[in-house]
Design a binder for these strands. Structure first.
Lengths: 137, 137
DNA sequence: CAAAAGGGTGACGTTCGCGTCAAGTTGACG
DNA sequence: CGTCAACTTGACGCGAACGTCACCCTTTTG
């Protein structure tokens, strides 16, 4: 059940960086913060499919304005599908919180977008008028 | 046309902090970065209705993961409604960019919410099973 | 009128999220 | 076998976004 060495395409740190557009420093930093834990062959890091999924979530989280620590909490939630551990319901509750937060953020974002659209519409009108004035001058 | 001393309810720095849940340091910092420019009576700061609107936008922007510098750009856009100045179309273009960015962010957020919902549904099933096992033990 | 409350200006400290060397190791290749 | 590219671990540096502290001024209140 726990996938063995299948078509698992392990990536080196350089390959990871190329794929996600980050620096090695960033990956090592995330590792130090226990956000991504790659396998080791000797001292060399090897990133699994899971690592890639995690990094994707991390970068996504950052774009939403979450801190790395908050993202770490979120990642634990996504782990549940793979490794069901103890403290399940606690993590579950945490996930619910996050969901609420994200839904709240979305509605805020929607409102902000609407406002911005209106401002831009406002702007368009003024631009058109200025164009007319210049055309008639 | 430019509203005079109407029911403009000027607020002191303390009152602003209470209303928005920020510290005086934060407001002075934003002022140093030219995000909010309150009026002065002597040395004392007095925050207008406009200042409040701006602060609201600032805090909103932060939740969306914008930097203060990016937010400053956005604020200039919202100013256009009040003070139509030069460099209008530049700011307008900037606003369009922002709109695109925010719309992109929303669709990302939507996807993330959907994923998270699925994870939580997954979790619920496991929780229910554990409850059944405990009930039958 | 004395003292507390509230506000002001520096200026230095702190945390986060990395960037940037320095110095050593390891694997592949001509 | 050398060397060269890619990797490793520190360690220090840096900009953003404030916190904190010191010290000063004014207003108001018992």
């Amino acid at each position: 059940m726990t996938e063995k060495g299948m078509g698992d395409t392990l990536l080196t740190i350089g390959e990871m960086c190329a794929e996600f557009g980050v620096t090695p420093r960033t990956l090592r930093f995330y590792e130090a913060k226990e956000l991504i834990i790659p396998r080791r062959v000797g001292t060399r890091r090897l990133y699994t499919r899971r690592c890639r999924a995690r990094l994707k979530l991390i970068l996504q989280g950052k774009r939403f304005g979450f801190s790395l620590e908050e993202i770490r909490q979120l990642l634990n939630l996504y782990d549940i599908g793979d490794q069901q551990k103890t403290q399940f319901s606690r993590t579950y509750a945490l996930g619910l919180e996050r969901l609420r937060a994200m839904e709240a953020q979305r509605s805020e974002l929607d409102a902000a977008i609407t406002e911005l659209r209106q401002q831009l519409a406002w702007g368009e009108q003024i631009l058109e008028r200025e164009d007319l004035q210049r055309a008639s001058a």
